[in-house]
Amino acid sequence: MFDYNFHWRPVMKSLPDLLEASLLTLQVAVLAMILGIIIGLCLALIRLNMRGPLRWIASTWVELARNTPALFQLFFFGFGLGAFGLHLSPYMIVLAGLTFNCAGYLAENFRGGFQAVPDTQIRASRSLGMNAWQAYTRIVIPQVFRIVYHPITNQMVWAVLMSSLGMLVGFRELSGETQFFASRTFRIFEYFAVTAVIYYVIVKLILGASRLLATRLFRY
């Protein structure tokens, strides 16, 4: 049944390269999440509080990000923008694609979070003499943060998993690097098996760190 010889040595030899590439994966995922959180927050606030073209743009962004495949979004930033003479580097393609996607998904989470905080609380804090900024940053945001903490963690995991699509646009993060080595040695199965393990470990580390952080943050 098994007339296939597994060769793990080449994989072990390039393991340092793979681990270095996984740092790149983490880097692009974290950057995309930071940008995604900022943009997603803006999109959610625009959709909740504004009318007119700005709201239309925000809604379109969210619906497009949520209703098309992430790979399609990457291709769009990769090849689609090329039609306008805008050529992004593979790193920028993945970063832009992930940010676009994360911002769209996070915006919906934030919107749900904001809607979960009753209006009366804002009015109460305003009547206590807080200005709008204080009311938002001291009353609303802390509560919203608790609600969206778990979805943000999930989105972070998704960002790491999604960054593997970089391999299809020539970005040499963990998956791209794996494919590069695999196609040089033809030990495709071995390489991708090790990469799968690395991804699993990264995801578990993120979830563990998030749980640890949650016990520190939400003690009271």
Binding site: S175, I188, F189, F192, Y200, V203
Partner: peptide, 23 residues
């Protein structure tokens, strides 16, 4: 949990290359 923690694209490549190994 493994299938949720490994990118789908890796799963696809892995399975596609694993199937011939087991015939």
């Amino acid at each position: 949990d493994i299938f949720r923690s490994v990118p789908l694209i890796i799963q696809l490549v892995l399975f596609y290359n694993f199937a011939p190994i087991v015939g």
